[in-house]
């Protein structure tokens, strides 16, 4: 009896959510399609032929984006951790380093990414120093690494702070040095905690690689922009947008999955008092 009632209730819930979804989405579609400018929008933004023409080029550009954000993410993971660890040191001798790390975080997070891309992209070559990179792609990557390391360092640091002090006491009591305790006890736990917020920052980074286009490299946004300007249509930009979604949406689902998994598998990983 009870099972049947439960099943019935579940069915009713499914029906209601399906109906409500249909009504809302249908309504939105109706507003869109009946809007006065819809015909224009459709031909400039969603033209199938334009899409077919521009897609291969945009895709090629996007491949550059992918390579760029993978490399930048690897650099950010390392640099962010180094900065976070420097900020958690206590020894007086490290004060200048701590200060530097704090300034690094403030500046990296405080200046708009697009400005950093400009400043690094045009400022570094202007120095005319031997040994500094002059390639626009490398400079853009450096600017992104700088900016995102600031955020990621703070994410790491919040993770390190969230590990209960009794863990450090336990590790020290065993005779480990502070460095060994960080390496084997604190940081592994901190990293596990911060994976979801870390990946969130990477979602942002995967879109922000488009900013490097301002320095000249032919990545997806720039290719699309040129295509769009020469054909007086915006469809290539839509194509680029869809490509970004292809990497950011799966990443968002991965984050959701990891969060759900960490809740499910390990229970709450909090350490008793």
């Amino acid at each position: 009896m009870r099972a049947a009632a439960k099943r019935q209730r579940a069915q009713r819930r499914t029906t209601i959510s399906a109906l409500s979804t249909l009504v809302v989405l249908g309504g939105l579609a109706a507003i869109l399609v009946t809007s006065p400018g819809w015909h224009e929008v459709r031909t400039t933004y969603f033209a199938w032929d334009d899409l077919k023409d521009s897609f291969p080029d945009v895709l090629k550009g996007f491949w550059l984006d992918v390579k760029l954000f993978v490399i930048v993410e690897a650099c950010v993971l390392v640099l962010g951790l180094v900065v976070a660890l420097v900020r958690t040191t206590r020894a007086p001798a490290f004060f200048p380093l701590r200060l530097l790390a704090a300034v690094f975080c403030d500046v990296a997070r405080g200046v708009p990414v697009v400005l950093l891309v400009y400043l690094v992209g045009f400022g570094v070559p202007a120095l005319d120093l031997k040994g500094l990179p002059t390639d626009a792609l490398v400079l853009g990557g450096m600017a992104l690494t700088f900016s995102y390391s600031g955020y990621v360092a703070e994410v790491y640091r919040s993770g390190i702070d969230a590990v209960h002090p009794s863990q450090m006491a336990g590790a020290l009591a065993l005779g480990l040095t502070r460095g060994q305790a960080l390496r084997h006890v604190i940081v592994p736990q901190a990293v596990r905690r911060v994976v979801p917020p870390l990946l969130n920052d990477f979602i942002a980074l995967q879109k922000d690689v488009a900013l490097v286009s301002f320095l000249g490299p032919m990545e997806a946004f720039r290719v699309a922009q040129i295509d769009a300007a020469s054909n007086f249509v915006y469809t290539p930009l839509v194509a680029a947008a869809v490509l970004y979604l292809f990497v950011t949406i799966p990443m968002a689902r991965v984050v959701d999955h990891l969060q759900a998994k960490s809740r499910r598998v390990r229970g709450v990983v909090e350490v008793a008092a």
Partner: peptide
């Protein structure tokens, strides 16, 4: 320690 302080 009272709270064991094992590494989870």
């Amino acid at each position: 320690f009272q709270a064991f302080n094992l590494f989870p």
